[in-house]
Design a binder for these strands. Structure first.
Lengths: 203, 203, 203, 203
DNA sequence: GATGAATGAGCATTCATTCAT
DNA sequence: CATGAATGAATGCTCATTCAT
């Protein structure tokens, strides 16, 4: 008794997995269809093309992420606390959806250049900006509250998300055994206090 | 009057540009051949397949990077100074080769999975590890010298390279106008001292 | 509150327009259904397949033409007058349905061959013969009455219909500005008296 | 030892046969390739697309026709004789290439409309005009020489070619047994002198 | 009867790779 | 060594047809 919306979401979820595993070009629409338990043609009832399915997949995932994080933040007032819970949620989300994060930046920025249509390029960038904007806004409020250094919030959020993403990725690639809580503590500490050992201050 | 080695290097340089611009799948061997001024078949005299050419291209680029950085570091003893000059060189290299960095991780981890041969997967990871190892070694020496916090050096180097890469990428995507020196200062400060504002009261 | 027959005729009329505009293969059953204000599946309640719909469409149109022409001829006795009024009616009908005439012969003879079933081929030819038979009969009576040369009436009717059709088509393709009455006069004169200029001396 | 031009012409000749037999849409590029003894991909070395192959095929055939007719006319001065030999040659050519003539008009005018690109429409019309222009020029010279009635030469040539084509087609469809010479005589007589029996004049 | 979601066979086109020259 | 014509496997997308509601 699935309705249309359910089926669309089913396809999006499967698509996330498959795109994540193989990247845009290596993914066959038929693979997604089969895994979603529908026929090839059915995918085209819901998405105009493979490319549009890809956009929708990323958008779906990012919106899911933002929603999740917002829920977790609900009721928290202090900007720094909000930032911390935001980082934690982001970290958890990235961990659970780590594969799709492997391809977002790349496919978005690089692969899409082949399609000389500026339209697609713009869509890519637009989705990407959305995902950053949320983090950037958090930064702003922390800067305004005097918690963080007055650096361009875009740079700050870039630094944070880059740091987080690559730590997640590399801990997988290099098989580092570390539990999520430890991981989170290290990441937050690195971002907020830096890597430098502060001997003097600790004395 | 090029000899064989010259021609091979010519192809590798062109390949870096083209792969960087379009990503692995969207790049046609013929494009690379044309731009390198040779025939399609000639590429196959030097590289067994498109995939092997891709590996070689990345390897070539990363080795070039490591060499460049080593040269810049030559004669510097203090680990922290070495780290700083390393960051600066790395930053400059990434800036000049930024496009290929957009695709390395992604293509490596994700796209190559289509070839179920674990061999390729291994090669990818191997190259990637090389590129990280150099930074990781720098971290180690700084930790040993008591400059940096005793965090797993792989995590530290991941944090650094993620932070740098994404700052570079986003400053482009979001059109942030900032000169390289400023950029470098902010990045190093963020990495070493963190984003947290240290008020007078904390002194 | 349409009954079944009305709905069938509605579909046939729409089908004529769409097939005429796009030809058999480029026409989608769904287009016809939408324009006829019914659902795709409904078309299949009335017609077994797209191909059968196509046959029915042509048959419907040709029967309409024959009926129209017969009505116009009613009460006229003289074979030559009947022929002339027939040509005029045919000309008018072709003019109003010119698009479908563009594709009848072609699709009939050529495109349908893909279905190796001789059945379809036969159906096509049958419909086509019907459309010619009427003109051919007119020719016969004119020959019998001594008005026309005793040439095989099939050839005569072919010559006439080819001449008319192509004049209509080309006057469109080449943007010739000519009113229907003039057009008709020229066509009839050409057919009956030929293109040759009959000089005084020949009298 | 075929060179490239030979192979291109081989493909064009095969394409003429196959397009003629099945029409544009029902023809598979692979069929043409197989019949031409090359691989599917090879066709695309010589022709950018199926559509372009179709245009080229028709153009090739029409140019062949015009050349053939011109050769047959070489040395003949009198416009009416030129017209007669032209008709004869045209008739012979159409007879030998009758199948492709079944689809030219239709596919050109009708089917091509689906591609909303005006470019294709224009190409179609252009090729079609070329094929008519030759006949139209013949008409002009006969009109100027006082042989034919001063009717718009485009209409005259349309009448002639329509008359000829449909006579050929129908003599096939209706299995009329008639030899080429007879056929030619009837067609020329019909066109020049009309279908009307001229009792008076013959007395 | 009427619907329209779902199906899957079918086809144009691309491009890595080969190999005769 | 170098070439580039030829190959054919691979895949995105369409649309006639079916059938559960």
């Amino acid at each position: 008794m699935e309705n249309k919306e359910d089926k669309k979401i089913k396809i999006l979820k499967v698509a996330e997995t498959v795109f994540a595993e193989k990247g845009f070009h290596a993914t066959k629409v038929e693979d997604i269809a089969n895994l979603a338990g529908v026929a090839k043609g059915t995918v085209y009832l819901y998405f105009k093309s493979k490319e549009q399915l890809f956009f929708s997949t990323i958008k779906f995932m990012i919106q899911g992420m933002i929603e999740t994080i917002k829920e977790r933040m609900a009721g928290i007032e202090d900007p720094l606390d909000r930032l911390k819970i935001g980082i934690k949620s982001y970290f958890e989300y990235v961990t659970h959806h780590k594969q799709i994060f492997f391809i977002i930046l790349n496919e978005e920025i690089a692969s899409s250049r082949k399609s000389c249509e500026k339209d697609n390029q713009k869509k890519h960038v637009e989705i990407y900006r959305q995902s950053q904007k949320f983090v950037t806004d958090l930064m702003k409020s922390c800067i305004d509250a005097g918690y963080l250094k007055p650096i361009d919030p875009v740079l700050l959020s870039s630094a944070l998300s880059g740091l987080l993403q690559k730590m997640v990725v590399n801990s997988i690639v290099f098989n580092i055994d570390i539990n999520p809580d430890q991981f989170y503590s290290i990441a937050v500490d690195l971002f907020l206090n830096g890597a430098m050992l502060r001997k003097e201050a600790e004395k």
